[in-house]
Design a binder for these strands. Structure first.
Lengths: 338, 338
DNA sequence: CTGAAAGCGCTTACAG
DNA sequence: CTGAAAGCGCTTACAG
């Protein structure tokens, strides 16, 4: 492996000049530059990253800590971040925290020890801590880590879009199956839905919104869905909005078991737009999280090393598919007044 | 940030001794070791990875190149590799090749430039090339890269397990929907199925195995499934074995559209055991790839730096679920002779 | 068993 | 505009 010295010798310049050519320093005259470039070419010289890192005390790496890379949302995020990083000649170091705070702390320390350009973290909990102080930039994504800037979907606004969609279809009796209420995301999605519904239908005596607390999984959806759908069709909700696609798919399974057809007798919405949402029958109306934008924003904020970095909420997009439809007049109990 | 010098000063030893303590060199006497450890503790000293890397010309990193981290199989693989690496105090650098050979080559060079302990790669194609020679260990996973050792599921054996299962249920007329035949994996799965079937049922005049070539996606399964199931129930296959779960799920959708009940009128098997396989109704009988074992083996082989490393084929496990059942006597055309 | 010292391959003020 | 040289923080023969 040839070094910068070999290049300098062959090009008959000093190593300092070679270094400047490599870092595109414009003060190097064209003639010298050409000679150096030619020497680099003939020797097949590749700079030693470790030596550079030792001098500059920073490596061309972005650290990424996610709870679980097999979660499709995080995988998507990792993909976008990697692509953004690669465009800037940065490599991504990946770590899984398994949603465990101790592991997360260890992973983060390991990453920070290597002096990366920055670290992007999806926090495992809301009480994560750092082992020691650092001046390496950190940004949180989706779930905030400590007090670092957070980049996420505008959950409340997304839920409001879904509420608007259902209300626009004539639904007045709606059930909302929320995610864990001890998480910000769970609360933001629920509150966004509730606030919009309440504001829009404040004067409507037929309007009713019920809440159920669940987890972001199929089982929650199936169990709560079964409970809701066991009620008399004349009084039960005509639409169920779920805090995640997984919950929504659980609800759809419960509906099928009970021979309740979607969207004729029941409209269902999710949140996330996982792959499966477009594969089930009927396809699921949901809110697509702006994953690519989140990843891109995270890298930008990190690289800008913006001291005054603020939170960024990115708007999701509603994807209307077959699981939602106009309210069935037979189920409204009384005539509709849209 | 304190350095090894600060530690040496505080412990009143030489930096060489500190270095030896850190690398657990047993020649350091206990008394000195204690003093050094105490100094490290009080200073909160953390070794500089770049400096170490410059000296040793190797960093504590494993490179991982996959076609697409959002593919659940690769995500699972990445997770296992990361866990194995973390146990050895190694970090994982991740790159996505997007199944593009040029990108793959670039990613690989970037990774190798950083002098990692080794690189694990799922090749994008069978003609991938390196930009230059390297003595850094490389192992291929799932799809071979050049001539580097390959660690993968024993595809042929897995297919044979599925064939055995279907034959054991009495199926004699079987269709096999293969993956792309210009890939080794596609061929191995197909041949494993065909070989077992042919050997077992060589003497059975009622046995017939038909092949269809597809891609590993839902659409392929749905299209080919529709074609197969359009035939007269008395002569069409009583079981369809698919080269992937996605194909199998496509087949199941076609069957539902045609009101053919699974497994009463048709048995279906997949390959991979993706999450969805356990979520659809009925749940899919399939072959679970030994992802964790593959990841663990890849890291082991890499770290062992075994010059004579050979290919490793790991046995998958059949997961029998609701999509397969005994052949329906009404469909066999004649009485069964199991 | 311990220490002094060379040196890994760069970058970066500084001098000219 | 270019070069000489210091030095980043370690590891590792080598001497004692």
């Amino acid at each position: 492996m040839s070094t910068i010295k070999d290049v300098a010798k062959l090009a008959e310049v000093s190593v300092g000049t070679v270094s400047k050519v490599i870092s595109r320093d414009p003060t190097v005259k064209a003639a010298l530059r050409e000679r150096v470039l030619a020497a680099i070419e003939t020797l097949g010289y590749r700079p030693n990253h470790s030596a550079r890192a030792l001098r500059t005390n920073r490596i061309d790496v972005i650290g990424l800590v996610v709870p679980d890379i097999t979660n499709p949302f995080f995988a998507q995020l990792a993909k976008c971040i990697e692509a953004e990083a690669a465009m800037r000649n940065l490599t991504v170091m990946l770590a899984n925290s398994h949603d465990d705070e101790a592991t997360e702390r260890r992973q983060l320390s390991t990453l920070l020890d290597r002096a990366p350009r920055g670290v992007i973290i999806v926090a495992s909990s809301e009480s994560g801590r750092l082992e020691y102080q650092t001046d390496i930039p950190i940004v949180s994504v989706d779930r905030r880590f400590q007090t670092y800037p957070l980049i996420s979907t505008h959950h409340a606004e997304g839920s409001a879009q879904l509420a608007k969609h259902l209300i626009g279809l004539g639904h007045r009796r709606i059930a909302y199956i929320a995610g864990p209420q001890n998480t910000r995301v769970g609360r933001a999605r629920k509150e966004g839905f509730a606030t919009f519904f309440t504001r829009e239908l404040a004067a409507d005596p037929n309007a009713s919104l019920r809440f159920y607390d669940g987890h972001y999984d199929y089982q929650s959806g199936e169990d709560i869905g079964r409970e809701i759908l066991a009620e008399d069709p004349a009084v039960r909700p005509t639409a169920i909005a779920a805090a995640s696609d997984q919950i929504a798919i659980g609800v759809m399974r419960a509906a099928r078991d009970l021979d309740i057809s979607i969207p004729d007798q029941l409209s269902v919405t999710g949140f996330d737009d996982i792959d499966l949402a477009a594969l089930i029958v009927p396809r699921l109306t949901t809110l697509k999280q702006p994953t690519a934008e989140i990843g891109a924003a995270a890298v930008s904020v990190l690289i800008a090393e913006d001291e005054s970095a603020e939170d960024i909420k990115l708007r999701g997009e509603i994807v209307v598919r077959g699981s939602t439809g106009p309210v069935n007049a037979l189920l409204t109990g009384k005539s509709q007044r849209v």
